[in-house]
Design a protein around this nucleic acid. Structure first.
Lengths: 242, 242
DNA sequence: TGCTTTGTTTTGGTAATACCAAATTTTTTG
DNA sequence: CAAAAAATTTGGTATTACCAAAACAAAGCA
């Protein structure tokens, strides 16, 4: 049943061409008839693909003139240039308050669910899933839909940039023991219904995360310098390459 | 040039039918051929409209089966049932931290801009615009794009529900003097670069807002009771209506 | 009677084609 | 050289046809 319809694959092809710079932003796509020939499909199929791209905001159709590539929303995100530090700082502050709120209203079941995520982490199950569940349960416990939506949008922000994902992954996978310990501290603070302690525990969790991010960046920067200087060395070396 | 293409108007028609409950969530749309007849357009045009709706996430196309109406993201927002209290509490906590952050990094120009919004408010200019500008300047001063995006999304949340808008309006218009005074307190705290004082000032601002919201709700509830009891009185009255 | 199989119908998917209108480009003309 | 007119290009819409998968109904079998 789920045989992908033809136009979707055309959408992907065109989108790939746009992303690869084959069809630069601002440029005009080839005419529908030509695209139809090039992809070996009929013109209606091309039209459907273009409409999908248009609804997605990737292109703009000017009647009788052509189809033009728009600046993608991704570039809008890149322009914003949100980095992992900013996201983490924001998460620290917001989720700190979330924890403080949740301490007053979290119930037995939710504490049990939190505990389960800790067990899952210790067993080495999908860390990211357990991490996400942990923070989501606490957000739920605030009984504040607005706060929940904020936590979710921060999580999405985290997933919006490749750079941020890489940074987080390198941090999470490196020190899962510390992550688990900090999660447990937060869990205990919530269990004791202490708002300040919960906030502090959450802050400490993210504080460590930020520091690890700094370390990771420093390492990357050092490696870059090494690589560059090594390249330079090669460049100016009088020895011939193999 | 900008003559709307035919399929867009079909999209609107179908979307209106969905929103009006004419095509309930989960139901199947009439077949393409029938829609084409009904709207007096060709089948390709109907197909284009359906594709647009599909990309927008309003419908799901099952090959050889039909086009099914999906639960809209709007209904998701309504299901969440975010009320004015939740939004205000979230704003208090988030913007409290925003103010604390901003206290460390706000500059002269931004302080001057803040002052201008106060002057605008005192002059009785567009209160909402000045209010928005005030909070936006502070968010900007955090130098944290993630925080800025959170503040913005909270503001949008505020605008997402009619109920919330009404609640806020009734509050803001009632006591503009207090609002201005509180804004000035926040301004002074930021000017002195005192993070804790800034956070507290922001909290107090929203604290008053929440209380006023409670009062407004109480008044509304009282009026409702009065109205109902008055209706009851009428109902059981032995006096005849005029 | 109840289940399975088979065949028809319905429905969306794709293609080919024709014609239109607006925008663009080229050519013509003053 | 510039303005006007014609031709071309390009997307917009309609018509038609045929295909494949799904849904449905009917017939056959256990």
């Amino acid at each position: 049943m789920a045989a992908k319809r033809l136009f979707w694959s055309i959408v992907e092809l065109i989108e790939a061409s746009i992303n690869s710079g084959n069809f630069p932003v601002g440029s005009r796509l080839p005419p529908e008839r030509e695209l139809a020939q090039r992809f070996n499909v009929s013109r209606p199929t091309i039209r459907e693909a273009i409409i999908a791209l248009e609804v997605r905001g990737r292109v703009e159709v000017k009647t009788s003139s052509g189809v033009y590539v728009l600046a993608s929303q991704q570039s809008a995100n890149l322009l914003k240039n949100i980095n992992a530090f900013e996201v983490t700082q924001a998460r620290a502050l917001v989720e700190g308050e979330v924890a403080a709120l949740a301490a007053a209203s979290i119930n037995e079941q939710e504490l049990e669910d939190l505990n389960q995520t800790l067990i899952d982490m210790e067993k080495g199950k999908d860390m990211e899933a357990a991490d996400r569940a942990f923070h989501k349960i606490i957000a739920n416990a605030t009984r504040n839909e607005a706060m929940k939506s904020l936590v979710e949008s921060l999580w999405n922000l985290r997933a919006s940039s490749k750079e941020i994902i890489e940074d987080y992954d390198s941090v999470c996978s490196k020190d899962s023991a510390k992550t688990i310990a900090e999660h447990r501290a937060i869990y205990n603070a919530l269990k004791s219904a202490d708002a300040d302690k919960s906030r502090t525990a959450m802050h400490e969790h993210f504080h460590r995360l930020i520091n690890t991010l700094f370390d990771a960046e420093e390492t990357r920067a050092l490696e870059k310098i090494k690589r560059e200087s090594s390249e330079k060395r090669d460049m100016y070396s009088i020895k011939r390459q193999a």
